[in-house]
Structures are given as C-alpha cells and as structure tokens.
C-alpha cells in the first residue's frame, strides 16, 4: 500500500513539473509573439512619458520638453513639403493664440530642413508658435516618427495622451488642445 502511495506522490510531482514546463514555454512563446507583432509601431506608446529632448528654434532659443512640465504640449512633427502640414498649420496657429494663456503650448518639430525653408514657411503662414528643427533626426528617431504630420499630445504630467498620425481638422485640433489643458 505504501508503494502505491509513493507512486501517487511521484505522479503528483510529475504533474506539477509538467505543468510548470509547459507554462514557462507557453509564456515565453506568447511574450515573443506579442513583442514581435507589436514592435515596429511604437517606441513611444500612449501612457509613456514623452522622451525628453532639446532643440533650438528659429530665434535661437533652446526648447527642452521637460521645461513644459505642468503644461500641455501639442508636439507636432512636420515638413514644409508635406501637404497636410500646410493645411493644419493655420488652424494650429489660431488655437495656439486662443489657448496659449491656458497652459497649452505648441512645439512644431521640423525634420531636418534648411533654416531658410522653414523660416519662409513660417512667414507665409504667419506662424508664431515655436518651430524647432531636428537637424540630425535624433528626436524623430526617439519618437519613431514615420508619416508626416505626426502629433503627440503630451499632458501636463509629461505623459503621452494620444498619437495622431493623420491630418487633423480644425475641430479636432481644438478638442485635442483642450484635452491637454492643465486643470
């Protein structure tokens, strides 16, 4: 009888070992698949702290993202040649003027174009919000920006609230800016 009990005990131990081995393998595989399937998209995800950076604007002032902590930042990556950017910039300018005093800032990051080109664009559209130029693409890489325009809504807590990879309508721009207004 005791032999029978011993066998039963051995069997139970074997069950536990099998379950553990299968569980470890399954977890490893599921993790690998999830990471692989989702990886190329988001270096920066909604809810992450927006990577800090430091860029110089057309007037020569240095802007550091973390200096805006406590206020909302409408972080827009753009290019002078990109059609949708041309359409949304005037709307951004309009609501920048409206919300600037409510703690919502715009930082427009141009992807490595020449000063002259960016300046003439700003003049053409009468843009007054700070425009910085990412000459080395390092900020673009840190945010893994692919299509232009791409906009990151950064809340007063420095966290990314939303990522928009398409052109925004005037109405959308307004509601996005309201959404990151410090309360």
């Amino acid at each position: 009888m005791s032999k029978q009990q011993e066998r039963e005990k051995k069997r139970k131990r074997q069950q536990i070992i099998r379950t553990a081995i299968l569980a470890v393998l399954a977890i490893a595989i599921v993790y690998t698949i999830v990471v692989n399937v989702t990886k190329d998209e988001d270096i920066v995800k909604v809810g992450d702290t927006a990577p800090d950076f430091e860029l110089v604007d057309l007037e020569g002032n240095t802007h550091r993202l973390s200096d805006y902590r406590g206020e909302g930042v409408f972080l827009n990556f753009w290019g002078t040649w990109c059609g949708p950017c041309k359409k949304e910039m005037p709307h951004m300018e309009k609501y920048f003027n409206e919300f600037e005093d409510d703690g919502v800032n715009i930082l427009a990051v141009n992807i490595s174009e020449s000063d002259l080109k960016v300046q003439s664009f700003a003049n053409t559209y009468g843009l007054t919000f700070p425009i910085v130029i990412d000459k080395t693409n390092s900020v673009r890489d840190a945010y893994n920006v692919r299509p232009l325009p791409t906009t990151f809504l950064v809340g007063p807590d420095g966290k990314v609230k939303k990522i928009i990879e398409t052109e925004m309508s005037e109405q959308e721009i307004k509601s996005y800016m309201e959404s990151i207004m410090p309360s």
């Binding site: 081995i21 595989i29 698949i33 399937v37």
Partner: peptide, 19 residues
Amino acid sequence: YGSWWFMTLVGMLGISLVV
C-alpha cells in the same frame, strides 16, 4: 516570417523538442 502563426509554429516546435 513576422506573422503570429508562423512564430506560433516555431514555438510549438520548441515545445515539442523539450517535451
């Protein structure tokens, strides 16, 4: 090669080898 089902197959091969 980046699809979930292909990776699942390779993963199953791994389990099969261990077991």
